[in-house]
Design a protein around this nucleic acid. Structure first.
Length: 208
DNA sequence: CGAATGATCGGCT
DNA sequence: GCCGATCATTCGA
């Protein structure tokens, strides 16, 4: 039976509950096509960032700067920023316009055109290092800061998210505290990181 | 304008 | 496991 590939709709992203949207992004496919070839990976790990009350969010307290302004866009836009001066981290903005929620995509299971992903990562062999981690998955898919603000629902968008009709059972989703947000005080304990149970492509938990 | 600080990664020990 | 890389962003002077 032919598996259907459908781009997620605007209404998927504009919902208010960013935790629910985060859970539902597991099992969907992040796809890029910049002309050099189409690459895609199955989303296996995400984190929710909820404005304005989440101290781990760049939009905490509705902070509005040149960098964060894209977070206030309509759900379905990309928010890409540079972390530690090296890594480009891909988030998808959720909620209605003016609501700065976002979901960070943290790990993918390689799916389409792994040859191009390997080339972008300067690797020879498919192993978790290819796409397990928010910085490395962006590199594998060719995503960089220049794509922040892109609308994933625009017809000619080089980045989008697909449903390939591979349902994920609620029992397969593990919730845990987000990675690297120790500065966020009481919000650091919130279990807003979601990943697929036992999946080999989930990023390794760093031991302090 | 200067300084501190990350939603990290990978090479080296 | 440790540690250095490397720079946009932010904030305060």
């Amino acid at each position: 039976m032919l598996r259907q590939k459908t781009r997620l709709s605007r209404s998927f992203f504009t919902r208010e509950d960013v935790l629910q949207v985060s859970r539902e992004l597991l099992g969907k496919y992040l796809v890029t096509d910049f002309g050099a070839g189409r690459t895609a990976g199955r989303i296996v790990e995400v984190e929710a960032y909820r404005a304005p009350d989440d101290k781990a969010s760049h939009a905490y307290g509705n902070r509005y700067t040149e960098r964060t302004k894209v977070m206030y866009a309509l759900g379905g836009h990309a928010y890409v920023y540079l972390c530690y001066g090296i890594h480009h981290l891909f988030n998808v903005v959720t909620g209605e316009q003016g609501m700065a929620h976002a979901v960070l995509i943290r790990a993918l299971e390689p799916a389409d055109n792994t040859a191009l992903m390997l080339r972008r990562r300067r690797m020879n062999k498919i192993e978790p290092r290819l796409t397990a981690g928010p910085g490395v998955l962006s590199q594998a898919l060719g995503i960089s800061r220049e794509y922040t603000g892109v609308d994933l629902l625009a017809p000619e968008s080089p980045i989008w998210i697909e449903n390939r009709e591979e349902p994920v059972a609620a029992a397969e989703i593990i919730a845990s505290p987000r990675i690297g947000v120790g500065y966020a005080e009481e919000c650091a304990a919130w279990e807003w990181r979601f990943h697929l149970r036992g999946n080999r492509w989930v990023s390794k938990q760093r031991v302090s």
